[in-house]
């Protein structure tokens, strides 16, 4: 199991488009992927789960991956967040 922490830089926060991209990406991996924001942790493979968090710009999130390809999953998620100007 591995974890990484990111600060969401984009002032708009995790709105619908980046969130769906992120969930689609998470679904590419076998590992279970979770995202934690404040007191809530949700499955990152579920769109409505991730959106329910209402992650705002400037906040800190923790992504946790658990499975054979956990390392690749976290790398890919980090890249995507950077593309969105998120971390």
């Amino acid at each position: 199991m591995k974890e990484r922490t990111f600060v969401i830089k984009n002032p708009a926060g995790m709105h619908a488009r980046p969130a769906t991209k992120l969930v689609t990406l998470a679904n590419h991996f076998k590992a279970d992927v979770f995202i934690r924001y404040e007191d809530h942790q949700v499955n990152m493979k579920s769109v409505m789960g991730v959106l329910s968090l209402g992650i705002h710009g400037g906040s800190t999130i923790t992504v946790r991956a658990d499975g054979d390809d956990e390392e690749e999953a976290l790398d890919a998620i980090e890249d995507l967040l950077r593309d969105f100007n998120m971390p």
Binding site: A12, A16, G54, I55, H56, G57, S59
Partner: peptide, 13 residues
Amino acid sequence: FSESLNKAIESNA
């Protein structure tokens, strides 16, 4: 839905 989500993000911020 997307609009109400954006409102929720704003209020969280």
